[in-house]
Amino acid sequence: MSIYLPIAEISVNVFVLLAMGGAVGFLSGMFGVGGGFLITPLLIFYNIPPAIAVATGANQVIASSFSGALSHLKRGTLDFKLAGVLLAGGIVGSTGGIYVFSVLRSIGQLDLFISLLYVIMLGTVGGLMLVESVNALRASRGGSPLPLKKPGQHNWIHRLPLKMRFRASKLFVSVIPVLALGAGIGFLSAIMGVGGGFIMVPALIYLLRVPTNVVIGTSLFQIIFTSAYTTFIHATTNYTVDIILAFLLMVGGVAGAQYGAKAGQKLRGEQLRALLALLVLAVALRLAVDLFVKPPSIYSLSAVGLG
């Protein structure tokens, strides 16, 4: 059954979109990430214009992170204060990101920039996670203690000034890296149409040493607001949010996420991280291929005067 998308102005198959949302939702529930980093590339592969894919991806992320954050709220694994500071940075970053987005779109380099950012970010994060989780898997198999630095051990980040206490995270840390992290992720969120969970989660764990149990809830909670803000700005400045497309993805995504979360509980942390790393790397690789392989047509058309 096909449906006409009023903003993207093309006809798409409803079941393909529901399935896409469902599959991504399953994975995002399993790994505790929003899934924006999968949705946006998938939409682009499905011929949705990248500008629409990004903005609509941000809208879709709200639904999945809200759904996820609710369960963390119930369990109390959520640091409101940390999320608030991250959010303050996020708003600034997101505003900058949207400005850059409009400029790139007008000079015709948006698609390239989105793909490059995806390849670099996903490649780096996926690579680091894979190395870390494989090491952890090896260590646990060998029965020797984990070689990882324990949370609480300090690095350069903990020597920065303007310290603030985050009780729920048992953390006493400078606000500078927290704000910077929020801003960086807000920026990426605006340009890549992602919540940024796949960067936020490892950054909170490895850089700020936030206890793993509060990381996902806090990240999801913060992402609701960053992506809501991104959606708002995209919809009012670029008119690129397709509410019908977003809704189909959300319905699939929310349903998939609940089953994914169940499946995730059956796996160990290191196994989950290794799988997520492989998935992230696979998406990066797929996008990289498109950048380096000669496209079927080297010419493209774009409307003039749409920003």
Partner: peptide, 12 residues
């Protein structure tokens, strides 16, 4: 769009 997303997430 945002309200729809939140509602869908909550209903889900």
């Amino acid at each position: 769009a945002i309200a729809l997303a939140i509602l869908t997430g909550w209903l889900g």
